[in-house]
Amino acid sequence: MGCYGVECHEPFCAYGCFREHAAMVRHLVYHITRDPNDVEDLTQEIMLKAYRSLDGYRGGSFRAWLARIARNHCYDVLRRRQTDDLPLADEVLATVEPGPEDVVVWREAVWEVAQAINRLPPVDREILLLRHVHQFSYDEIAAAVNMRPGAVRTRVVRARRKLADLVDGREIRETPELG
């Protein structure tokens, strides 16, 4: 898998576009650490770590390998700091919260989905992120989070069902009773 653009020659380009990887790592770091101030530093550390340990890459999906490094590194950092799972940063919540101008109904759905995502276990959040934003396959996610593909699939299905129930429930609540 090469870059989608013109010639690039950046590090990692043999394994896909560096920028895609960096975006994925940033999101993963952000969703694990929940600290926007850490994102750049940790991303840099992860990319360096990955580059230095390229010899240890033994085939398979490169981005899954990278995601696994990113997860391990983030959890190491969290463990060192001994911090709990922090709530989503205030500034981000503030941007998600619907304002008075949000007259479009489904913006509320987005907000509710965001809240629902926050209530998911961290691993499920990561899985959803990798699956629904970065289009990882189940096998790739399994490799990244060190689970079996079936378990990943089950978690994805459950998380989706929760979200669907949430939206369904909202629609039911909003539907006026007839008769």
Partner: peptide, 21 residues
Amino acid sequence: DLQRALVCALTAGVGATGGDD
């Protein structure tokens, strides 16, 4: 709709996660 909402919600921190490649 849910997929779009998911992507929106999961990338809501783009301002925070948007780094400098």
